[in-house]
Lab assay of single mutants.
Amino acid sequence: MAAAAAAGAGPEMVRGQVFDVGPRYTNLSYIGEGAYGMVCSAYDNVNKVRVAIKKISPFEHQTYCQRTLREIKILLRFRHENIIGINDIIRAPTIEQMKDVYIVQDLMETDLYKLLKTQHLSNDHICYFLYQILRGLKYIHSANVLHRDLKPSNLLLNTTCDLKICDFGLARVADPDHDHTGFLTEYVATRWYRAPEIMLNSKGYTKSIDIWSVGCILAEMLSNRPIFPGKHYLDQLNHILGILGSPSQEDLNCIINLKARNYLLSLPHKNKVPWNRLFPNADSKALDLLDKMLTFNPHKRIEVEQALAHPYLEQYYDPSDEPIAEAPFKFDMELDDLPKEKLKELIFEETARFQPGYRS
């Protein structure tokens, strides 16, 4: 834990890192770190609560700039109880001085990944967590956004079992017609939660990839272990087919990539493993919904509104309290091709509203 900075004593240090967030945020305490930044909790002297502050230093890398800009653009436009918001952003007053960006968010005690390492969940908890994931996802999908990296560590939890989806750095506007060349190379989302079509096709992607990830998360809540822990690309596919069985001819016809289709045709026939054999203690309604989410063919996979209306979630289902976005989200430009200098300018502009004396 960093010592509390005395008023006016300059930035606090946390594990050798400068955290320049005073005077409003003090009493910093280390939480963890990701690929390009550290997260601390801090005391907000204005709202009198502890908050989470993520320090991001992305400006050396085009990919990190892209992810940072995506996350900020999306989260500043989203407003939903099951999606983490941005409360404040701290950065230098000029673009030349801006080396880091500090993002202030609600402090959540833990995440689903940490929880599943230590606790076996009751059916009631599984049901409530799944409902909140789908409630947040309904809003995301209504904005025409794909999260693309749903996994237990991106689901934040607090002691009252509130759940918030975080990390929109890989999110995209849904565009089933656009052929994202190089899709697989830039697709760094965790393999275990990846839909089979991501490994088999490169053309376009749809909201059904997020539903697949939610199915993987439900299976993990039922058993405290990942359902498809593939060691590499082909191993991942083999794990999936080992449980779902061989795809039907109709399902194979959806695979545009001939090499991928021929690979699947070359494999020995596998039978589907019954879900109640894998999860003998699970609620039968939970397994019915799991089956509809972990469907090989993305066109037959359940959609988020149908999933919310499934009998497993009937005690929570309330369409009048499951809000959607006001308007579909649009990125003005494809960020993939922009140089990091341009992305830095866009991050600077996007964060201006939090600067003292800002006038829109």
Score class of each variant (00 low, 15 high):
147 H>E: 04
303 E>C: 08
338 L>T: 02
151 K>E: 10
257 N>M: 08
26 T>L: 08
94 T>W: 09
135 R>F: 02
194 R>I: 14
141 H>S: 12
281 N>D: 00
304 V>F: 13
300 K>V: 08
82 N>P: 04
56 I>K: 15
66 Q>W: 04
233 Y>K: 11
240 I>A: 03
325 A>C: 02
72 I>C: 02
145 V>G: 11
14 V>T: 09
117 K>T: 09
46 V>K: 15
21 V>I: 09
233 Y>C: 01
59 F>M: 13
254 C>H: 05
173 V>H: 05
136 G>E: 10
337 D>N: 15
233 Y>P: 02
221 M>D: 10
25 Y>N: 14
219 A>F: 09
81 E>C: 03
257 N>L: 07
314 E>T: 02
97 Q>P: 06
294 L>E: 06
62 Q>G: 10
318 D>V: 13
57 S>R: 14
46 V>G: 11
210 D>S: 06
252 L>F: 03
158 N>V: 04
120 H>F: 02
210 D>M: 07
167 D>T: 05
346 L>P: 03
166 C>G: 11
69 L>D: 05
79 R>I: 13
251 D>T: 09
112 L>S: 03
309 A>C: 03
315 Q>N: 06
222 L>T: 05
146 L>Y: 05
222 L>D: 08
328 P>C: 01
276 N>I: 14
273 V>D: 01
56 I>V: 15
5 A>C: 04
137 L>S: 06
157 L>S: 03
128 Y>A: 04
12 E>I: 06
65 C>V: 14
329 F>T: 04
74 I>S: 05
286 A>N: 02
269 H>A: 00
280 P>T: 14
53 I>T: 00
95 I>V: 00
333 M>V: 00
308 L>W: 10
313 L>K: 07
247 P>I: 10
125 H>N: 13
106 D>G: 00
312 Y>D: 01
279 F>I: 15
17 Q>G: 03
252 L>E: 09
156 L>P: 00
68 T>N: 15
100 D>I: 08
90 I>K: 04
78 F>P: 05
159 T>Q: 09
57 S>K: 15
96 E>Y: 05
343 L>Y: 04
63 T>H: 15
206 T>H: 08
7 A>Y: 05
44 D>L: 13
252 L>V: 08
115 L>G: 03
180 H>K: 07
32 G>E: 02
85 G>M: 12
63 T>D: 14
226 P>S: 11
146 L>D: 06
269 H>K: 09
87 N>M: 09
181 T>G: 04
200 L>S: 11
307 A>D: 13
275 W>R: 15
34 G>A: 12
215 G>V: 14
83 I>N: 13
352 A>G: 03
31 I>A: 00
131 Y>I: 10
210 D>K: 10
283 D>C: 03
57 S>I: 13
332 D>Q: 02
161 C>L: 08
236 Q>V: 08
81 E>K: 12
244 L>M: 14
175 D>C: 03
251 D>H: 09
104 V>H: 02
353 R>G: 05
101 V>P: 03
88 D>R: 03
360 S>M: 08
245 G>D: 13
85 G>D: 13
153 S>V: 06
332 D>N: 13
334 E>I: 00
297 N>I: 15
138 K>I: 14
349 E>C: 01
12 E>F: 00
30 Y>F: 14
360 S>P: 13
153 S>D: 02
25 Y>A: 00
313 L>I: 03
257 N>Y: 15
52 A>K: 02
92 A>P: 05
182 G>F: 09
73 K>T: 06
238 N>G: 10
331 F>S: 00
97 Q>V: 09
43 Y>Q: 14
28 L>R: 07
170 L>M: 14
240 I>T: 00
314 E>M: 00
103 I>S: 12
50 R>D: 14
177 D>H: 13
55 K>T: 02
206 T>S: 15
274 P>K: 04
186 E>V: 13
357 G>A: 12
344 K>D: 12
57 S>M: 15
73 K>F: 09
278 L>R: 08
286 A>S: 13
353 R>T: 02
119 Q>F: 06
91 R>V: 13
131 Y>G: 01
346 L>N: 12
319 P>Y: 06
96 E>V: 13
338 L>D: 02
120 H>A: 14
254 C>Q: 05
322 E>K: 13
154 N>S: 12
30 Y>G: 01
347 I>P: 05
193 Y>M: 03
54 K>E: 09
278 L>Q: 15
92 A>G: 02
150 L>N: 02
232 H>E: 02
320 S>P: 02
349 E>K: 13
220 E>A: 11
69 L>C: 05
214 V>Q: 11
101 V>E: 15
169 G>L: 04
20 D>C: 05
35 A>H: 04
106 D>W: 00
138 K>Y: 10
10 G>F: 10
95 I>Y: 06
262 N>V: 03
230 G>F: 07
108 M>Q: 01
51 V>F: 13
34 G>K: 01
154 N>T: 14
128 Y>S: 11
21 V>S: 06
220 E>I: 07
48 K>T: 11
287 L>C: 02
282 A>P: 13
149 D>H: 06
121 L>P: 11
93 P>T: 15
90 I>V: 08
187 Y>S: 13
203 K>H: 11
116 L>N: 02
102 Y>T: 08
143 A>S: 13
248 S>F: 10
237 L>G: 11
296 F>G: 07
154 N>D: 00
319 P>K: 09
333 M>F: 07
43 Y>E: 14
134 L>Y: 09
109 E>S: 05
152 P>Q: 08
65 C>Y: 15
173 V>I: 10
71 E>V: 13
245 G>N: 01
190 T>K: 05
305 E>I: 03
55 K>I: 14
198 I>D: 02
349 E>R: 12
49 V>T: 09
139 Y>H: 00
258 L>R: 00
140 I>R: 11
349 E>Q: 01
255 I>W: 09
64 Y>N: 15
311 P>H: 15
333 M>W: 01
82 N>I: 15
313 L>T: 03
36 Y>V: 15
77 R>Q: 12
233 Y>E: 10
259 K>D: 08
252 L>I: 03
290 L>F: 01
96 E>C: 01
195 A>W: 09
241 L>R: 00
116 L>K: 06
99 K>L: 05
161 C>E: 11
132 Q>M: 04
318 D>T: 01
323 P>F: 01
241 L>N: 11
229 P>L: 10
278 L>F: 04
258 L>Q: 15
14 V>S: 03
185 T>C: 10
329 F>K: 07
72 I>V: 03
252 L>N: 00
322 E>S: 06
51 V>P: 11
78 F>N: 12
304 V>G: 15
30 Y>H: 00
16 G>N: 02
177 D>S: 07
242 G>T: 04
296 F>Y: 14
267 L>Q: 15
256 I>C: 09
309 A>W: 02
78 F>E: 02
206 T>V: 11
148 R>W: 07
28 L>Q: 15
318 D>C: 01
357 G>Y: 11
208 S>L: 10
208 S>F: 05
152 P>Y: 02
42 A>G: 09
171 A>S: 14
236 Q>I: 04
59 F>Y: 14
308 L>D: 09
195 A>L: 06
144 N>H: 04
2 A>G: 08
61 H>P: 13
187 Y>Q: 06
15 R>W: 14
224 N>Y: 15
153 S>G: 00
41 S>I: 02
161 C>G: 00
19 F>A: 09
274 P>D: 08
198 I>A: 00
315 Q>F: 01
320 S>W: 02
99 K>S: 05
294 L>P: 04
134 L>G: 05
213 S>R: 15
327 A>Y: 03
101 V>Q: 06
107 L>E: 05
264 L>K: 08
84 I>P: 01
336 D>P: 03
74 I>D: 04
255 I>V: 00
79 R>M: 14
11 P>R: 12
316 Y>N: 15
344 K>E: 00
111 D>M: 04
75 L>P: 13
40 C>Q: 15
297 N>M: 06
44 D>W: 02
134 L>E: 07
150 L>M: 14
295 T>Y: 02
35 A>M: 08
265 L>P: 10
44 D>A: 13
6 A>G: 07
292 K>C: 07
348 F>I: 14
293 M>L: 14
208 S>H: 03
241 L>P: 04
182 G>E: 13
256 I>H: 04
242 G>N: 03
100 D>E: 14
25 Y>F: 14
66 Q>T: 08
35 A>T: 15
72 I>H: 05
49 V>G: 10
317 Y>T: 06
348 F>N: 11
247 P>K: 03
347 I>V: 01
141 H>F: 03
49 V>A: 15
76 L>N: 06
227 I>E: 03
281 N>P: 00
275 W>Q: 06
275 W>K: 06
13 M>V: 12
304 V>Y: 03
125 H>Y: 06
239 H>F: 07
236 Q>N: 05
69 L>V: 07
21 V>N: 04
182 G>Y: 11
196 P>N: 10
55 K>R: 14
76 L>I: 03
25 Y>P: 05
17 Q>S: 02
220 E>K: 13
355 Q>Y: 09
21 V>Q: 03
27 N>C: 09
56 I>N: 15
255 I>H: 01
80 H>G: 04
214 V>L: 12
305 E>H: 00
